[in-house]
C-alpha cells in the first residue's frame, strides 16, 4: 500500500495553488489534511502526478461570521471547527455534526474544505452544507466562482470542481431567527465510522412555538447528501408535534435513492433515513424550544 510516484510542491498563497494546478495538466491534486486522499493514493485508487500542499496557505485558514454566513476557510482543521466558540454560537448544527467526523486524530489533520471537496456521500460536513444550502467558493488562476452546495455535489466522490480549481471557502448560512434549534443523528456500525445513514435538521420557531423555517437533509443514502425540503414543507406553521414530524419524515424515503452495500441494504437506509430524520427534527424542536425558554 504505497502511493505511486508524484511530484510535490508546498505553496503559501492561493495564487500559487492555482498556478501549480494550472501547470499539472489536470493531473494535480490539492492535499490539505490528506485523511481521505492519502489512503486512496496508498491503494492507488488516486494517482495524481502532482500534490499541491496547501497547509501553509494562511489565507485558507480561519473561521468568520459575516454577512449572514459562517465562512469557514477551506484548510481549517475539523478539530478547530469543532472547538470553535464561533461555530458553536452561530452554527450549532455544524458543531453537532463535527463530533461524528472520524476520530480526534483524523480531525486534527482533516479539514472542512477537504471533506467538502472529497464529497463522500456519507460524510457529515457535506450533509450539513447540503441541508443548510451552503455556498462553496472556488478559485482558478483568473477567476473565482460561488457554487451552491446542491449543485456542487454531483455524485459519490464527484463535485463540480474542475481539476484546476481550488476550493477556498465554505459559507454556511446563519439563520437570523431568534429561536433556532438543530439536531444531528447518525447511525454507523462503530462510532467514528462513516455514516450508514445520517440526518441533519434545523428549525426556527416563532415565539408561539410555530415552525417558521425548517431544513432537513439525509446523508449516506445515495450518491450524495440530499436536501429533503420537499418532504418538510408540511412542517411550516405547525408546532412540530410528533405526528407531523413522523408524517414528514415518512416522505423522505421517496426523495432518496439509496443502494445496497456491505453495511446496509437500500431498504434499511430508507427506513433508517425516516427514523433518523424524525429524531433529528425532534432534537431540533427541543433545542429551539430550550432557546425560546431561555
Amino acid at each position: 500500500m504505497k502511493a505511486a510516484p508524484f511530484d510535490y510542491v508546498r505553496v503559501t498563497t492561493v495564487a500559487e495553488v492555482c498556478r501549480a494546478l494550472d501547470g499539472a495538466g489536470g493531473e494535480g491534486k490539492i492535499i490539505a489534511g490528506g485523511q481521505t486522499l492519502v489512503p486512496m493514493m496508498a491503494m492507488r485508487l488516486a494517482r495524481p502526478t502532482l500534490l499541491v500542499d496547501i497547509n501553509d496557505v494562511s489565507e485558507l485558514q480561519g473561521i468568520a461570521a459575516t454577512g449572514g454566513a459562517l465562512k469557514v476557510k477551506a484548510c481549517t482543521r475539523q478539530a478547530a471547527a469543532l472547538a470553535s466558540p464561533l461555530v458553536a454560537a452561530t452554527l450549532p448544527l455544524l458543531a453537532r455534526a463535527m463530533r461524528w467526523v472520524g476520530h480526534g486524530q483524523t480531525r486534527n489533520r482533516g479539514t472542512v474544505g477537504g471533506s467538502i471537496a472529497h464529497a463522500d456521500p456519507s460524510a457529515e460536513i457535506p450533509l450539513v452544507a447540503v441541508t443548510l444550502g451552503a455556498t462553496i467558493e472556488a478559485r482558478r488562476s483568473a477567476s473565482a466562482r460561488l457554487i451552491e452546495a446542491d449543485a456542487f455535489f454531483e455524485g459519490p466522490m464527484m463535485t463540480a470542481l474542475a481539476a484546476d480549481e481550488c476550493l477556498t471557502e465554505v459559507r454556511f448560512p446563519v439563520w437570523p431567527e431568534a429561536h433556532v434549534g438543530s439536531g444531528f443523528e447518525e447511525v454507523s456500525a462503530r462510532r467514528g465510522d462513516f455514516a450508514i445513514v445520517a440526518a441533519a435538521a434545523q428549525v426556527a420557531l416563532a415565539p408561539d412555538g410555530r415552525c417558521t423555517r425548517v431544513a432537513v437533509g439525509i446523508g449516506g443514502a445515495g450518491g450524495r447528501a440530499v436536501n429533503c425540503a420537499p418532504a418538510a414543507g408540511s412542517l411550516f406553521g405547525t408546532r412540530l408535534d410528533d405526528a407531523t414530524i413522523d408524517a414528514a419524515a415518512g416522505r423522505i424515503a421517496a426523495l432518496i435513492e439509496p443502494q445496497d452495500d456491505i453495511h446496509a441494504t437500500a431498504d434499511y437506509r430508507r427506513r433508517a433515513a425516516a427514523a433518523l430524520a424524525a429524531r433529528a427534527l425532534r432534537s431540533a424542536r427541543a433545542d429551539a424550544a430550550t432557546k425560546a425558554a431561555a
Binding site: 456500525a189 415518512g250 453495511h263 434499511y268
Partner: peptide, 18 residues
Amino acid sequence: MRLKDIEALLAAKSGPKP
C-alpha cells in the same frame, strides 16, 4: 448479528410502514 440483520428482522415483523 449486524445492525442491518437485526433491523431487517424488526422491519419484517412490523410490516410495511405507511
